[in-house]
Design a protein around this nucleic acid. Structure first.
Lengths: 343, 343
DNA sequence: AATAAGGACTTTACCGGTTTAGTAACGGCT
DNA sequence: AGCCGTTACTAAACCGGTAAAGTCCTTATT
């Protein structure tokens, strides 16, 4: 455990025969150092293998090289939600270009998240944060505004309290999903939704209602879940257990996992997909192409979504551009093998 | 964007009528402050809503409240790999108890990771790191030892160069998988493996070979993939396209995703599972219970694995205990609907 | 020739804590 | 009374940088 003789700016300065200040100027590409000296400094730094200590740098008031993301969902559930990992990997792909890391933390409540963001920011651990999973009356918008933290909120502008936001048009997507199924001839359409407390779930629920009413679909129904495959399976089972005359002939799911679960419930109950019941997934991770039949889905580029969020955050942090709300492309219906006209 | 008047240790000291030093002592529960004063200090801090600035703290030489994890796999692939997100969520669950965050970064090469770990450590951004995905002649063990970074390596002791490690006994698990299939009567068993460059893939490959030879299975064969569903599907397709007499009657996959993909390939080729071909998945995420038929799998508690890794890391960081190598329970065969005797 | 204007650095003052050395006050002991 | 050992604090140095305010020297301007 021999501490490898930490080399600091002072060593570099000594070796290059200049002051600390000169080294700092050189390394931050600021004017005030001649080319010759700059070269000498860089050479000295290279020889000693020095690079500025980020902690000291951020204490002294510079930007930090990490952004925060707190996720408020049960740890065990997250593990299987393809959305998040794909979202995170999209975020990472942009951060990496900026030599920036992601500070990730699971929290239990939004209140806990507020405290965390506060301490991350005041402790200069992050130069900005990504806020996800907005719910009704979310305290985070007010909190981060009060603290002055640069953030980008993931969610519809109506939920994110005026913060710079990036969002997908869930309402339009739900409407398209319902219209598509109705166009195939389905009348009894069900929706297996996500966690009721989440704002975007509420938006989808309202949109589903509106679309069903507009199309005069009498047998439309919705249930809420927690996004897990188990609960999704249970919901599907109870929907499909109804007498054939009442049973939905099409089900829309709020994520892929539940759709996969629904597929196997149908199989287990001896119902054919899409013959007896059509299934429509959401997010369209790779999973949808790996089942049999393949799953029709509302498809969007989650990786790209994450990347866009990260790009927007950099805009907010540097102060140039980025304010306002940015819609990313609306999920588009991708018909595959799990949807067809009802029998 | 009104900066909310950062409150520092000086303010607390002033308010409590003591010096900065006293506040520091009080907050670090060190002797040298009377109970009465300590209470006054805490009260002052509470009123001002102060808590020590971690950056300043770590500059001044204290421990940091984050641990690092760099993952070296293509971003798009990670998105769907249930293993990682579940592993990470297990790690998080323990970190959270210690009010510690995870610094996550995707890297392209191990060399890049070495540089990153170096800069994280020297910059006091992390108090330790988790190292995953060891490959042959991995440079990381030597590097972190040279730098004196507290780490826990995830992988078999033969791969992790003497670092404190946590590992699952892949060899035994593979052997059990092969024995199980052989016991069912299978002779032509194939394995769709992961990325060949990874150490644990090599271990499984060797173990598969050994087990097949030991059992005198003449038709055993293996292919390498990149862990993605697409490539897994392609591998399955080419295995099953062989004439019936050569075609494997059982396939072991190195993760869940590829097994799910394999299941749908079988269906698409008109082969019944487990009638014509048995499939065995690996990791056993929730996914395996969501397919039809459900997937038999080598099952282990990935979440708990991550948690154990985090606990071990804390042991290494604090210096008490933790050295050596810790095996977590070997994946255990969980038969479900996708395996049966060959026809 | 006197003066202003830059350029190239150096000095010095922080950033917000921790930590060490130093001091004053108090109690116990001989 | 004198000496020692604690205890409770304070003052100041330090961590490794950044940034504002000098200093000195050269060159252009009037």
């Amino acid at each position: 455990m021999t501490t490898p003789s930490r080399v600091t700016i002072k060593d570099v300065a000594a070796r290059a025969g200049v002051s600390k200040g000169a080294v700092s100027l050189a390394f931050n590409r600021k004017p005030g150092v001649s080319d010759a000296t700059r070269d000498r400094i860089f050479e000295a730094a290279r020889q000693l293998g020095w690079e500025p200590n980020p902690t000291a740098r951020s204490l002294a008031g510079r930007r930090v090289d990490a952004v925060g993301l707190a996720i408020c969902r049960p740890a065990r559930l997250l593990g299987l939600e393809p959305f998040y990992m794909e979202f995170v990997s999209g975020v990472e792909s942009v951060l990496t270009e900026h030599a920036c890391s992601l500070l990730l933390r699971l929290v239990r409540t939004v209140e806990e998240e507020v405290g965390l963001q506060d301490s991350w920011w005041r402790g200069k651990h992050v130069s900005g944060s990504i806020l996800v999973d907005f719910r009704a009356d979310d305290p985070r918008a007010a909190a981060v505004r009060r603290l002055g933290i640069p953030v980008v909120a993931v969610g519809h502008p109506s939920l994110t309290g005026g913060l710079t936001s990036v969002w997908t048009d869930d309402a339009s997507a739900v409407t398209e999903a319902v219209r598509y199924l109705a166009a195939l001839g389905h009348v009894r359409i069900a929706r297996v939704g996500g966690t009721a407390a989440l704002g975007h779930t509420a938006i989808r629920t309202a949109a589903f209602d509106a679309a069903a009413r507009a199309l005069g679909l009498t047998g439309a129904s919705q249930v809420a879940t927690d996004f897990s495959g188990d609960v999704g399976a249970r919901a599907t089972r109870s929907l499909l257990a109804a007498p054939a005359a009442d049973r939905p002939t099409a089900i829309v799911y709020d994520n892929d996992i539940m759709a996969v679960a629904g597929l196997s419930v149908a199989a287990e109950m001896g119902l054919s997909v899409p013959g007896d019941v059509s299934l429509l997934a959401w997010d369209d991770s790779q999973l949808c192409r790996l089942t049999h039949p393949t799953l029709s889905a509302m498809s969007h580029d989650v990786h790209g979504f994450g990347a866009e969020v990260a790009r927007t955050l950099f805009g907010v942090i540097t102060g140039d551009g980025g304010a306002g709300s940015h819609a990313v492309p609306t999920p588009v219906l991708t018909p595959r093998g799990s949807t067809a006209p009802p029998r």
